[in-house]
Design a protein around this nucleic acid. Structure first.
Lengths: 122, 122
DNA sequence: ATTTATTATCGCAAATGTACGATGAATGAT
DNA sequence: ATCATTCATCGTACATTTGCGATAATAAAT
């Protein structure tokens, strides 16, 4: 693998934002998080019932969300109750916010540039 | 591949949010977007100078960002000037906002649950 | 001690992602 | 017409992701 040569070191918040984004980069995981937001918490089995996916697949998505820090699991034998990890959820919220709200003053008067740029490279 | 059996149809905004998130799921692409935000627009070559990556690699990341709709390119031969696609950037901003701000009233009084849940499953 | 319920993990297969160098395409300049 | 510049695309190699079924792990209940 040639990528070993190039493991760029980015700012920590850049890495962290990318990790969060990556975890959010699958519709099933977005849906799981939406579910957790609306239901407060729920068990793995509840999610398996909601999504037409194998239990192992749901479990794997939960693992990824947990590894990214977006959710946390509490063992209630023989079940596991998953909830959003509020601390990291807030962190992610702040990071995404700062990405999208790096306000650029001219962004309000660039109507003409939007027209000009349209599909020139497609 | 067995996944062919399971191509779940999600709500369109779920799919779209996941697409945006996926495009943001790599630190180089976050850094490119940050650069575009601060510099307004810039040419491919400028980015190649900034990142210690092959030109083809940078080009590939730009392609993904363009496919996701987050940036757009304007041909200025022999260069190409890339800018953030404000329309979709706003759309993404709104989608991420709605994900993170599905306010849950009890989220302010769950101090004890945060303590209880801590690392039970690791 | 065995059984039951629930979930995580393993191993597999296919697809996708990430990096590179080499090549091709487009346009302006000579 | 040829050359130089810039960028996209192709082909390759390896890693990671995503899905599944099968199996292991855990703890309560019998």
């Amino acid at each position: 693998m040639k990528r070993t040569l190039q493991h760029i070191e980015y700012r920590e918040d850049t890495e962290e934002l990318a990790r969060f984004a990556k975890a959010l980069g699958h519709p099933t995981r977005i849906a799981i998080l939406r579910h957790l937001e609306s239901q407060a918490c729920c068990f793995t089995g509840d999610l398996v019932d909601v999504f037409p996916l194998a239990q192992s697949t749901v479990s794997q998505h939960l693992k990824e969300l947990k590894n990214a820090g977006l959710i946390q699991g509490e063992v209630k034998p023989p079940k596991v109750r998953y909830c959003i990890n509020q601390e990291n959820w807030n962190k992610a919220k702040i990071l995404f916010n700062s990405l999208f709200n790096h306000t650029r003053s001219y962004s309000l008067d660039t109507k003409q540039s939007e027209d000009k740029h349209a599909d020139k490279t497609n």
